[in-house]
Structures are given as C-alpha cells and as structure tokens.
Design a protein around this nucleic acid. Structure first.
Lengths: 142, 142
DNA sequence: TAATACATTATATTTATTCTAAACTGTTGA
DNA sequence: TCAACAGTTTAGAATAAATATAATGTATTA
C-alpha cells in the first residue's frame, strides 16, 4: 500500500494507465528489496495468493511485456519459441540474430574461457554457454 | 549412399536399429563436412526435399533426442519450455539448475567480462549473457 | 521364416503463448 | 460531475511446439 502512489507515478510516466491489476503486479514485483525470477504462471499464482484481485493470464502477459518494453523487467535469454539443435557438439558459443532468428557459431578460440568465481554448494557446473544477441548496426550503414 | 554403411554402424553401436528413416536423417545431418543448426521442422523439410522418404514429425523428434543422448547432436541452450523473467535488470548472468528448473543470479563481478573476438558484418552485439547449467555434484556428497 | 521387440505413424493431448471481441474502467474536458 | 473516448481486462478461441498413445509396420533373432 505504502508504495502504491509511487507505482501509479511509475506507470503514468511510462504511458501506462495505473489500473488495479497493474498496481498489484507492481507490488508483487517491486515491493521487496531483493530481486527475483518468475514465470508468468508463477506470477499469476502469487497475485492470487496475496490479494483478492483476480488477474487473467492475458493481462499478466500484456503487463509483463509492457514492463519489459519500459525496462522494468528483463527476459532471461534462456528461451526461444522452439528448440535449436547443433551438429557441432564441440564446446563453442553462439550469436543469435534476433532479426532473422538465426544462430551463428562462435568458435571456442574466439572467446576467452569464462571463469565464474561463484559456486553453489552441492552443485557442479555442467556447461557454460555464452549467447550474444546481435541486431543490425544502423550506425555503420551510413 | 556412400556413407550409409558407416551410419548403420554408428546407429548399431548406439543401440539404435538402422531404419530407413534414421539412415536418411544421418545423411542429412552428417554427410556434409560443415556443421549446422536446425529446428525439428526444418529437418523434416530438408528430408522431404532431399528424398522420397516420408518421415513423421514424431520420428524426427524421437531420433533427434536419441542422437542427443548419444552425443551426436547438442541442444543449444537457448531454450526452456517457458519464458523466465527477472526483476533485476542490471547486467548479470545466471546459473540454471536443471534438476529444480530454477535460476540463480551470478553477479557481474563474479564473472570476468566476456570478450568476443569475432564480429558479424553489419551487426552489433546487443547483449552477452552467460548461462551456466548446474547439476548435483555427487562426487562431493561421498 | 516365424516370433518378438523395436520403430513409425497419424492422431490426440498438453502446455505456453497470442489473439479476439465484448465488457469494463481510467481519463479528459465540458 | 458526467459523458465520451481510448485504453484495459477478460474468457475463451486460436496457434504452435512438444509429447503421448496405440495401431501398424519392420528389423532382428534363432
């Protein structure tokens, strides 16, 4: 509640109408000081559990996408609408061309080994992959 | 054709029966010297175009998954069945726990900057993300 | 070659996501 | 304050990828 005004502001400044549903979604997403990861379904459940407000799946999709456009949320680049397979089973990385939905290999020698200094107790790293998303460079076309 | 025997061997050694469909799939995937990326649908189309053989979607799915289990193909870790979003919009990377389907942040300071030495003409890099897949480390539990 | 175990297939199912069109709500200005 | 409009929400339909099912077909074996 304390934050509601702040969210109304945030939404207005983004050109989004501050509706009951959007304010509730803001509260769930931004009230806590720590960040978190979620799927659409998880978000719907959290909202149902925390409030009397009913929010449809479609609204959550719309709002999450609107928030992404505004930079309030980020999609984790772990997903594509379909699976891609590779006949090159050696260790290498990829460019993903977002405009053409195409993958391009980056050979291992073109990337320095990625060293992760953090570990998770009881877990080991099975693979490390780098995905570099690329788009047209309009600057260089002038 | 020239490679068919070799593929029959490869399949037998993997405990897969060398059927017409599987041999055709091998030819499409492994005949050329260069590697390539594909989706299931693309593979179905290529097979239809290159041969008289009809292959059902289900067979291609089954075979591609069998080949992955054997290490002949790799799935590009760009996919999850659903999208994950993050309220942390700062630049950082992720662990993905494959057993629990959970994401864990890796802060930027825990990974050295990833430098990619290759460029694609007319394209610029929009984002570089590291996904480290983790699984239980049974070694350390003894 | 017969028996069996494995494969293939068309079709149905499941799941995530997007679309649609009708009902509803926030906003604006008289 | 209220009417009118534009933007929003919603249930349900549509789409699309992936998986499951069960009947038919095929490779293997002895």
């Amino acid at each position: 509640m304390a934050y509601a005004d702040q969210y109304i502001d945030k939404l207005r400044k983004s050109g989004l109408r501050p509706t009951k549903q959007r304010i509730k979604i803001c509260e769930v997403l931004f009230d806590a000081d720590k960040t978190f990861h979620f799927t659409i379904k998880e978000l719907v459940k959290i909202i149902e559990n925390q409030a009397n407000i009913k929010v449809s799946l479609a609204t959550v999709y719309n709002t999450v996408h609107a928030f992404m456009k505004k930079g309030y949320l980020k999609e984790i680049p772990l997903n594509a609408s379909q699976s891609y397979y590779d006949t090159n089973v050696s260790h290498h990385h990829h460019f993903f061309d977002e405009e053409e939905n195409k993958l391009i290999d980056i050979h291992q020698e073109d990337v320095d080994e990625v060293k992760i200094k953090r570990t998770i107790p009881g877990k080991k790293i099975r693979s490390v992959e780098v995905i570099a998303k690329i788009v047209s460079d309009n600057q260089s076309q002038k």
